[in-house]
Write a protein that binds this DNA or RNA. Structure first.
Length: 112
RNA sequence: AGAGUCGGUCAGACGGUUGCGGAUAUUUUUAUAUCUGAGGAAAGUCCGAGCCCCACAGGGCAGAAUAGCGGCUAACGGCCGCCGAGGGUGACCUUAGGGAAAGUGCAACAGAGAUAUACCGCCGUAUUUAUACGGUAAGGGUGGAAAGGCGAGGUAAGAGCUCACCGGUCUCACGGGAACGUCGAGAUCCUGUAAACCCUAUUCGGAGCAACGUUAACUGUGGCGAUACAUUUGCCCGAUGUGCCACGAAAAACGGCUUGAGCGCAAGGGGCAACCCUGCGUCGAGAUAGAUAACCGUCCACGACAGAACUCGGCUUACCGACCGACUCAACAU
RNA sequence: GGAGACGUAUCGAAGUGGUCAUAACGGGGCUGACUCGAAAUCAGUUAGGGAGCAAUCCCCCGCGAGUUCGAAUCUCGCCGUCUCCG
């Protein structure tokens, strides 16, 4: 398994928001943008709407865990930017991961 | 067992699988092994310091903070003890608590009058018998507050005008280290407000790790200015320097970054206590888009508030609960 | 992480101890006049909550305490919004 590469710079986030594909789930919004590299890159946004530091940290951990489980079937060579929504705080990471799979399959981004 | 007061401790536990940050060792990169990994408030940023830079820190004015006394502390606006005031049957709790006798201001409305006054009333004098003039703060009414309160003497009527007592203030005496206390003696100053200006005492240069340093890179373009600008609140003086602003280089990297006024001890000593001295033991995060998670199982009281960002000492605020110790009150039983 | 500033009707904003802020002033809304109709102009009106049959009364200047006879104003503590930094 490849190590997780994180997205840090603001312009990479903006690029994903503006020109990437968007997939909406009840717990988060996923933006995928094709890059030239051959691995998975992840960026997480947990804004002030989610809550204070404890809630935002929890949201980031849940997304990281769900993304790690999903990484086996996600296409390589993409930047993934995931924006947390408030409802993510009440569920487990397996639920989040299932919602990712469902949204991406219905949109045709991945095929079974 | 009931009602209550004060102080302290803990902040779900255990096991398995998969992952994350840091350190050390091995290693060609990779990786592997071991150890370790958030809080009592990490929070608010309200005070005080360390550290660091600006002239190593200058002078004057302005300004700010604190406010019973004594102690503790690196320091503090913090803590401990005591005094005064207030609350509680009590254990105990609360307390911005210097000066109004240096000076100035303010006290709306109401009321005759707000620091000075005469509306009604009372008394005296004059006379046209109802008014004028004068005296008065006892009584009425207004107000948060009306010459400290109350009684007696006194008087035309009255008034600290005089006297006794009481409250407050000041001086002396006695007690106490001091605040302060006292059937003590004297003075006879007495509306409130200083979280109004102010006075007194003490303290304060400014800025903050996005500070600052090193490496790399640029020495450019435009604007302002030598009667100028900068040295981080205002004004003046002094000293030192030559710049300052915008744009580009620019999406910089690394250090600072954790061993410190550190933590623990049913150890010894001093102190009522805060705390201090000695001894022994110990190393308990150091990230840089920011590390503690996911899933499964078992148990119970079913898990609150909440996430380090240079580091400490406090304060304040948030918080499901559990446990321990000391003490008070009421009632009953033995 | 650190340093500041600001919260007043629907919006902007004045008031900085004193008769109830008739919540000034401006914008907006509503009603009327003018118009065939509208705009512009002119005039009037306009926050919310509670008690009461009503007249009317009480509360409210982000929230909670305190000082004062009296607080939007002074002091302290919270909450929210915004700005700045190499």
């Amino acid at each position: 398994m490849n190590r997780l590469v994180k997205i840090k710079e603001n312009y990479e986030f903006r690029r994903a928001y503006n020109r990437g594909k968007a997939f909406v789930t009840p717990y988060a919004v996923i933006y995928a943008f094709k890059n030239k590299s051959n691995n998975l890159r992840l960026g997480i946004t947990a804004g002030k709407k989610i809550g204070k530091a404890v809630q935002r940290n929890r949201a980031k951990r849940l997304i990281t865990a769900a993304f790690r489980n999903a990484s086996s079937y996600l296409p390589m060579g993409y930047d993934y930017v995931i924006v947390a929504r408030v409802r993510i705080l009440n569920v487990k990471s397996t639920v989040v991961e299932r919602s990712f799979y469902k949204a991406l399959t219905e949109a045709g981004f991945i095929n079974k």
